[in-house]
Design a protein around this nucleic acid. Structure first.
Lengths: 187, 187
DNA sequence: TACTATTTTCAGTAATTACTGAAAGTTGAG
DNA sequence: CTCAACTTTCAGTAATTACTGAAAATAGTA
């Protein structure tokens, strides 16, 4: 048993892992979970729970909870080695696939329920002028969220190759838009 | 002084405000700040800090901190009424402008610093094979984030009208992409 | 079947984050 | 300048969230 954790992380990895922990916590993901995932993304070989705990200096049970969370987000792959009963984890190779999964899960968990609350509010009969105005705003928010949702669905259906191409358009997006608007002649 | 807070919120508003508080906390924004902002979005008339506190049953100082936070995100407008020294707050009328501001601020605060950490790591000379692999992954993450950043910049430069048009394309995004790919003949 | 390696759960505790009231700060009017 | 109206700050406290170790559960092996 080694007392340091340099067996699994180089200084460079450490910096990036720390940053992703920080970043996660700003986006409502607990720090440890962010660090575990960064570690798995950066490690070529799959790691088992003990190795993750040692690398990040966290308890075995904390690792277990973190992995459970990441698993529920569909962000892990697991492998097994003959003669070793431990589970070994890593992140998918395709980084864009990871992004797609994240977008899809967050939508399912956070956007969809909110859309449902907004729709409920829109079904109600306004009781007074405050409700009337509120409904106007709720309608705007609902449309905004639904449209962004549709775009994210599109996004998630593009292949990684298509996506790369789309994003390379870069500064041309506005132009493509104008062009397409004229082309179809719609609205 | 009224003991209930129904002066500023109808039951319908209450539901939506509560939901945005919840939602905020899942995205790393404190519940109260989310609620304050939802209240301001749904209220036609600008509200002062006392009114906000009464509506949400929170202390005056908590309102002050929440407004400070929202102000730092550029999400508020303020007005004053003659003979009244209080500040009155509300949210911009254009809901898409609010979304643009949110995207721009989050990028500035959270994405850009991470990109900078990733770039630092890429500048370093890999110490061993783990570093070599880690750099490969860091490179992928860097490119992904930079490309998404560019798209968000594009997004933020479109007018609300253009944006609406773009999002109405809906299921046509993939097709526009293929078309444009052939049109320009590039890459 | 019993045995052991491994993972998960969970009650208690630690750490973090949010909130409050009191005090200090700011600003405009007279 | 002084006063009053209003806002902000901040130290202390409350509430929430994260983490741990021990115990329970699970699953492979013989």
């Amino acid at each position: 048993m080694s007392t340091d954790s340099s067996e699994f992380m180089t200084p460079m990895m450490r910096q990036v892992v720390a940053n992703f922990g920080e970043m996660g916590s700003r986006w409502g993901i607990n720090r440890t979970v962010g660090q575990i995932y960064a570690l798995l993304v950066l490690s070529e070989a799959p790691l088992n729970a003990d190795q993750i705990g040692e690398a990040l200096c966290i308890s075995r049970s904390n690792v277990s909870m973190g992995l459970k969370e990441l698993g529920s987000w569909q962000l892990l792959t697991t492998v097994h080695y003959p003669g070793d009963r431990k589970d070994y984890f890593n992140a998918p190779e395709d980084i864009w696939q990871i992004a797609r999964t994240l977008v899809a899960e967050r939508r399912k968990r956070e956007i969809d329920p909110t859309l449902s609350v907004l729709r409920d509010a829109l079904m109600q009969t306004p009781q007074d002028s405050r409700d009337a105005y509120a409904q106007k705003r709720i309608h705007q928010m609902h449309d905004l969220m639904e449209q962004l949702t549709q775009v994210s669905e599109e996004f998630n259906q593009l292949s990684t190759e298509q996506l790369t191409r789309l994003l390379k358009l870069g500064a041309g997006l506005g132009k493509v838009l104008d062009f397409k608007g004229k082309l179809t002649g719609k609205s």
